[in-house]
Structures are given as structure tokens and as C-alpha cells.
Simulated assay, not measured.
Amino acid sequence: MNKKLSMLLPVIATCGLLAGCGTDYYTKDSTVFVAKNGSVVSTDVEDFDTAAYKQDDLQSYVDKSIDDYNKKNDGSIKLKKLTVEKKKASLTMSYASTDEYTDFNGTKLFSGTIAEALAAGYDFKTDFAAIDDGKAKKCESSEFLDETGYKVVVYEGSSNLHVKGKILYASVDKVKLVDDKTVAIGDKYSLLASQTTGTESATESTEAVKADATEGTENGADDSVSDDDILNSVKQDNEVTFDFDSEEDNSAPVSYITYVIYK
């Protein structure tokens, strides 16, 4: 879960904002989706104490946080959908760029070419593996650093990471390959220890519906997140009617630096 969202509901210790809505971005686990143009959709999934808090209160608080940011920063963050079901909260948000995602969440996210990443100060000084047919094989960064046609995402968080392309290389530490577009991130993972991916593991981790799938509807309205949705967000004006700040939880979420190189 990203840092900013974890602070939005400080009184809900291990709970928080969840996402995972919209046809194209449904997922059972918190996931950051990065498009090749640098736009982002985040899905955060956590437990939610339905006995203590109501969905409407959560909705108002999130709306206010997004609206305040957009007004102060000329931002284009958009809340696509927020649901609370069976003590689970689900939140899907879109951002025009990785910079906007980083600024709002306090979690670093970079997307660009390898040359742009190097210019931004990312040194690629970590262990890497090449990915081929679901198998990971240790390699040196020199194998891809001079490639001009590759894109890279650098993420300093703990959610799953999904790119709009085929993953060719990835950093090894704290990473597990879910499918050819997605990696899971966590203490128990090592890319070289997870050599294959299958239908069962992919289903258990991230269930992102393919971009060309038929868009879903809810009460006749389109709930999917398209590229236009990401770039053309709509501000929402709601008053805050619930105080979530009475008990603060200042614990910092665990995060890792993950590199994903794709084409």
C-alpha cells in the first residue's frame, strides 16, 4: 500500500484504502498499473472496519483529499471507484503521470526510457534477471542498458507492479514474476526462486482483465478506466463530515526499489 493512502485513514491501523475496481483494473491485490505514456492507475486493497466506519464517510474523506490536491497543484488525479464489501475496501485512482503519483502518494515511481532513468539518477546497481517464457535467468545490467527501444519502471513501493508491455528484465530482490506483465513485491520473494508462472499463481495474485476486454457497467454506467479517463480526470466537490485524524498511525509502509524493463 502506498504511503499517502495509508495516511488518509490513520485510525485504521492495518486497514486503509482499497482499490481494485473498474473492468480493466480489477485485482485482488494492491497493484500499480503503468502505461507506456507514463500515466498510472493504482489499485489499493486493504481490510476495512465496517463496524466503526461507513463507506460514505470514507468516500467523502478521499474525495476531499483528491480535490484539495488537484486545486493546489493543478492536478488531474481522479477517483474512479470506491467500494466496501465484506470488510474489504477497494479504491481505484488514476494519475496523468508518474510524477503526479509520486507527489500525491509519497511513493517514488518513475517511467521512461533507460537513458532517461540514468539521467534521473537511477544507477541500476542491483542484481537483475532476464525473463524468457516465464523463466528468470541471472544477468548483468550491461545486457540491456544500451538498448534504446526498452522502457523501464522504477518503483519504491510494495504493491504489485503491472506494465503495458512484455517484461524482459527485472531486479531480483523482493520480486516474483506473476505473468509476463506483472511482478509481485514482498519480503518472501526472489525472482530467481520463482522460475515459472502459471494460471493458478497468476489468478491468486493479480487478476487484471485484458485491455481489449468488454467494458463492464454498473447501473448502466461505464466503470472501466480507459486511457482518456487517466488523462482527463474530473474533480469532485464533497464536504468532509467525518474526522479520521483523532488517532494517528505514523508507521511507515515497507517499500522496496524495483526495476522492471519491458518492451
Rank of each mutant, 00 (worst) to 15 (best):
S65Y: 13
K108E: 14
Y26I: 14
E116R: 00
D228E: 15
L5K: 08
A52I: 07
Y189G: 09
F244K: 06
D228S: 12
K86T: 12
V41M: 06
K188N: 08
I261F: 04
D56G: 06
V260S: 02
D29E: 14
D180Y: 11
G20T: 03
T113L: 06
M7W: 02
N250S: 13
D63I: 07
D132K: 14
D245V: 07
H162F: 08
K188A: 11
T27W: 08
A52T: 15
Y25A: 13
Y169L: 02
D173Q: 10
Y256W: 04
A211G: 11
N160Y: 07
D44Q: 12
Y256R: 02
M93K: 01
Y69E: 06
S94H: 09
K166M: 00
V234Y: 07
D57P: 06
N238C: 12
T27H: 01
I167K: 00
Y53R: 05
A119T: 13
Y169G: 02
L82D: 03
A129T: 05
C21P: 02
F144M: 01
D127Q: 11
I167R: 03
A96C: 09
F48M: 03
T102S: 15
V254Q: 14
D68H: 02
N238I: 10
K4A: 15
A193I: 07
G186P: 03
A208N: 06
A115Y: 05
T214K: 13
L231R: 08
F242C: 09
I185G: 07
K81D: 14
T92R: 04
A252C: 08
L161N: 05
D173T: 07
T258P: 06
G198S: 06
L18W: 10
K188Q: 10
V32A: 07
Q236F: 09
T43I: 04
D103L: 03
S201M: 12
S97R: 01
L5Q: 11
V11S: 15
S111E: 09
G149E: 11
T148G: 05
N250G: 12
S226E: 00
A252D: 13
L9V: 13
G220R: 02
T203F: 15
I66M: 01
D179I: 00
Y101A: 00
E248D: 10
A211L: 11
I185L: 00
A208G: 06
T23A: 06
